[in-house]
Design a protein around this nucleic acid. Structure first.
Length: 230
DNA sequence: AACCAGGAGACAT
DNA sequence: ATGTCTCATGGT
């Protein structure tokens, strides 16, 4: 079932080649800045960091809070995020940077990330998947909404419960899972932006293309008006 | 002009 | 364990 949805999304939208970011560190900072925030706003904040030669852990640690907050301003919650980005950089530098962390097992690395104040489960998994290339499935609001509307989940399960289910059902070698989870999450976000709220018709949903009697899970959920925005 | 956007922490219950 | 509040900008 999860494989089927993935195939349909990939068929419709094509590869998304995520994460939008040139370096692993840019990906990590972006993961924090995009918390409950539109990506277009995050881009401005990252441009501000670049323009001030501050898109580097040492530079962020050296900056005054007021300056950092001013650079992050377009991404919203700038006071909170200035502190969170700094917390992350402090950990990142103390742990010796990317090369040193690359040898750490995924579970240990995940626990360390979660111990940083301001990095919750989704941000940690964004970083693990898209910066460290670890086989971790990212659960976000879009994922909950989509699969809730497809009748696969209630939507209010704990984060870890959903992640466990996706990772259990989507198996393979580590390398295969990294590639699959990367593309899958990106496609879910793409689909949410593409089809939600703008196309009330179920025909516009790529997940409706193959609606058939065999897909009872899918047909049932396109029958009601509640399935309008997939 | 309300509502939303690729969450997380603090705090009360 | 599970709710509620706060943080804040920019686009629709």
């Amino acid at each position: 079932m999860l494989h089927t949805v993935f195939r349909r999304l990939l068929e419709r939208y094509g590869p998304q080649h995520w994460w939008p970011g040139e370096t692993p560190f840019e990906v990590m900072v972006g993961a924090v800045l995009t918390q409950n925030t539109a990506w277009t706003n995050v881009e401005r904040a990252i441009q501000n960091l670049k323009a001030n030669d501050a898109l580097a852990p040492a530079a962020i640690m050296a900056a005054r809070h007021e300056d950092l907050a001013a650079w992050l301003r377009p991404s919203g919650y700038f006071n909170v995020k200035a502190a969170r980005v700094r917390n992350f950089c402090a950990w990142y530098l103390q742990r010796g940077g990317l090369a040193a962390l690359a040898g750490e097992p995924t579970t240990a690395l995940r626990n360390e990330l979660l111990a940083v104040k301001g990095i919750g489960p989704e941000t940690a998994d964004d970083i693990l998947l898209y910066a460290f290339e670890r086989p971790v499935f990212v659960i976000d609001a879009y994922t909950r909404r989509l699969f809730s509307r497809l009748g696969q989940v209630s939507g209010d399960e704990p984060y870890e419960a959903l992640r466990a289910r996706f990772e259990r059902e989507l198996r393979g070698t580590d390398a295969e899972r990294v590639t699959l989870y990367n593309e899958y999450h990106a496609l879910i976000v793409r689909h949410a932006k593409e089809s939600c709220r703008r196309r009330p018709l179920c025909q516009a949903c790529p997940l409706a293309d193959s609606c058939s009697a065999a897909d009872s899970w899918h047909q049932d959920n396109h029958a009601g008006h509640g399935a309008a925005n997939l």
